[in-house]
Design a protein around this nucleic acid. Structure first.
Length: 569
RNA sequence: GUCCCUAUAGCUCAGUGGAUAGAGCGUUGCCCUCCGGAGGCAGAGGCCCAGGUUCGAGUCCUGGUAGGGACGCCA
């Protein structure tokens, strides 16, 4: 399918060149030509303000420039008419005949509708979720899952070969706490009065794992230490996370274990590289520390840590990479991990993170810079928080406190399609208030049903067509009317919406477009009937052909959002 | 204190430097025998404040104000 703003822009560029060659316009470098869908249908379908932009360069009035451009505009099958409007706009109207026949073009593309080759031959990587296996997946992480997977689907739609990656850490202090907590829960389940470790995980889910463990191994583990329990907890919890993601329609191609960076020595190689470039040094406190910080560190008896001189790259202070104990903080392996990503040679890298990791990624970017990589090649999408409401009440919680609602419970309650839609339909930059009551509502307050119902209605038409044995192949599409054309105009905008959504890595654009398209569909469906006593058979066949294309459009949109396209509801 | 995000209709949100700023819910009035009423039509109603850049600013810049988040030798 054509991406119409681009097609129109090409025509304008050619027209300007021809006008310049003919001496109608003075020579100048042509700036990028912007063409947008016109906001007022009475003015046209697509519009460009290029003449206003060029007025200065051409040293003529915008209207004169527009006239010169329009005079030299080459013909194109999709252009019906070109007009000039007051301040200097060039307005295009689509050729109605061409528009009606786009029905066949849509059907010819099938489920690959609006697949593009922008990313042909290029490899993209999307890293998302990346939750450590310390508890069930909660709603905040789920937003990252939905965003990351939707971005991956979009990249695939424009032709990239996409790898989905999950980075995790199953070592370190947090995992030790997990093991120790499970051990305590296990002993409690056996009837011992074992206290939970300080800063342990209070969540109920570890009780569940402990009880299942008792049922499985009895009391044979009571003399085991925490590593055995950590191993078990990790296995069970990772199983939960994978299952939750699977239910949500999210799969990862690569699970990257932080530990492998130690096994290959990458972590220490990274540190050496940073030392060589002068970005690492040993000291008890960072170089820019004030008196108070120094006193505190001395009082605490701090030994030499290895610091990352990030303040030289715009940070407010330097960061510890290796603690005095010799153990690295997350900073060092994270930098090593991203260096590894860069070395794998992706053309495009996307990292989806929650707002609570906003500071962390900056340190990683500075680390990459210090190593000589170009950090702008890594696109970081930081999404804001998700708040869950039930009955108008905010539900709060953290994994540690354990009073969080696991994703599985939310999916049980509202269904996976609703979870995906509500987490997708907002720009990543804004908070999401997830209203469980609304998401579960089976009425038109719930946009999920509104969009899916458009597909259901199309499917209904074809059930009826099968009964009546009507065939739409070869239908005369010139019999389509204005309402159908309005719908086709909207559908043809899909190319530019997808292009823009990919450029901005903003998949919520797709959700909005789907909603808009459904809003255009339902009134039309009401008036444009296929099976009606007053509709002649040839018109009925043309409309049937049209609804076949409409069904495909909704199926494609829902697929891009990772949602199902139901036949009945 | 520093950094990040946000501020658009009564509410929840779109809006890519261009024309008269869009949708859903709510609200007011109305319509609909027929492909599933989980419907449709119409109306009222809005860019936080002050500067700046631009032929043109909801959009870009600076400074405020208000709300959310992050600022560990935790990950």
């Amino acid at each position: 399918m054509k991406i119409l703003p681009q097609e129109h822009a090409l025509l304008i560029e050619q027209a300007i060149r021809v006008a310049q060659a003919a001496g109608d316009l003075p020579p100048f470098d042509i700036p990028p030509v912007r063409v947008k869908p016109a906001d007022n249908a009475e003015l046209g379908d697509y519009a460009s303000p290029i003449a206003m932009q060029l007025a200065g360069l051409a040293r003529r009035s915008p209207l004169q420039v527009a006239e010169s451009i329009v005079q030299h505009m080459p013909a194109a099958p999709f252009v019906g008419s070109v007009e000039i409007a007051k301040p200097g706009f060039i307005n295009f109207r689509l050729n109605p005949d061409w528009l009606k026949h786009q029905t066949e073009a849509i059907l010819a593309e099938g489920d690959a509708l609006f697949t593009m080759d922008i990313g042909r031959g290029k490899r993209a990587q999307v890293e998302f979720v990346s939750a450590n296996p310390t508890g069930p997946l909660h709603i905040g992480r789920t937003r990252g899952a939905v965003l990351g997977d939707s971005i991956a689907r979009l990249l695939e739609a424009v032709g990239y070969e996409v790898e989905r990656e999950y980075y995790f850490n199953n070592a370190g202090r947090q995992m030790e706490m997990l093991g120790r907590t499970l051990r305590a829960r296990y002993l409690q389940a056996l009837g011992h009065s074992e206290p939970l470790p300080e800063e342990g995980y209070a969540g109920e889910y570890l009780k569940d794992i402990a009880e299942a463990l008792v049922a499985e191994v009895g009391d044979t583990w009571q003399h085991e230490d925490w590593p055995v329990f950590k191993e078990h907890a990790e296995q069970v919890i990772f199983g939960w996370i994978r299952n939750s993601l699977l239910r949500l329609g999210v799969r990862h191609d690569v699970f990257f274990n932080e530990n492998s960076l130690y096994e290959t020595g990458a972590v220490w190689k990274t540190l050496e590289a940073l030392r060589r470039s002068g970005y690492a040094y040993d000291a008890p406190v960072w170089e820019g520390a004030d008196e108070e910080e120094r006193r505190k560190a001395q009082a605490a008896g701090a030994g030499d840590a290895v610091w990352f001189r990030s303040s030289e790259l715009g940070d407010e202070k330097d960061r510890v990479m290796v603690k005095a104990s010799g153990e690295p903080t997350y900073t060092l392996p994270d930098i090593a991990y991203h260096a590894n990503k860069f070395d794998r040679g992706f053309d495009l890298m996307v990292n989806v993170l929650g707002a609570d990791h906003g500071t962390q990624y900056k340190t990683v970017q500075r680390g990459l810079q210090a190593l000589g990589y170009d950090p702008s090649r890594l696109h970081v999408i930081i999404h804001q928080m998700v708040r869950i409401y039930r009955g108008g009440e905010l539900i709060k919680g953290s994994t540690r406190a354990g009073d969080v609602i696991p994703l599985d419970d939310v999916m049980d309650e509202v269904g996976t399609d609703s979870v995906r839609y509500f987490l997708l339909a907002r720009s990543a930059n804004t908070d999401v208030d997830f209203d469980l009551d609304l998401a579960v509502a089976q009425n038109n307050e719930n946009p999920v049903y509104y969009i899916q119902n458009a597909h259901v209605r199309c499917a209904g038409i074809f059930r009826m067509a099968a009964q009546r044995d009507i065939d739409d192949a070869g239908a005369d599409l010139s019999l389509l009317g204005e309402p159908e054309m309005a719908f086709l105009r909207q559908v043809l905008r899909m190319g530019e919406v997808l292009t823009y959504a990919v450029e901005e890595l903003a998949p919520h654009q797709v959700a909005f477009f789907a909603g808009e398209t459904a809003r255009l569909f339902h009134p039309m469906y009401d008036s444009v009937r296929v099976f009606h006593s007053e509709v002649p058979e040839d018109v009925a066949r043309a409309r049937l052909r049209f609804y076949r294309a409409a069904r495909l459009v909704f199926r494609r949109l829902l697929a891009l959002m990772g949602m199902s396209a139901p036949e009945v509801m």
